[in-house]
């Protein structure tokens, strides 16, 4: 299981690199979405290893929070700043 954790953290860092080097704004949004999904996977694996169900509530909250963030940033860009 430790190897799986390390691999997912490495993949998360690689996705975060796309936020830094992305040529357009939407590439950065795509990177943000990928980082969020990796983080949810990591939280669920931690909950599965420690057998604590309250950690799953964190994953649920984080999924909804990432959803709101990406939706509102892309709507803001789509309307060119007039919200």
């Amino acid at each position: 299981m430790t190897i799986i954790f390390v691999v997912i953290v490495i993949l998360m860092l690689l996705s975060a690199l796309r936020i830094l080097i992305g040529p357009t704004l939407w590439d950065r949004l795509l990177g943000l979405n990928l980082v969020t999904s990796k983080l949810i996977m990591l939280i669920i694996l931690v909950a599965s290893v420690t057998q604590q169900t309250f950690i799953l509530d964190l994953a649920l909250g984080f999924a909804l929070l990432g959803f709101m963030g990406v939706i509102f940033i892309s709507l803001y860009v789509q309307r060119k700043g007039r919200f």
Binding site: L56, F67, I71, S74
Partner: peptide, 27 residues
């Protein structure tokens, strides 16, 4: 535990296409 993971899975399967659609439509 499995039921709660299933609830998270269903919610994510509903909101994931919305995120992609909103991003690409904005571009």
């Amino acid at each position: 535990f499995s039921l709660k993971v299933f609830v998270i899975l269903v919610i994510t399967m509903i909101i994931n296409p919305l995120i992609t659609h909103s991003m690409v439509r904005s571009a």
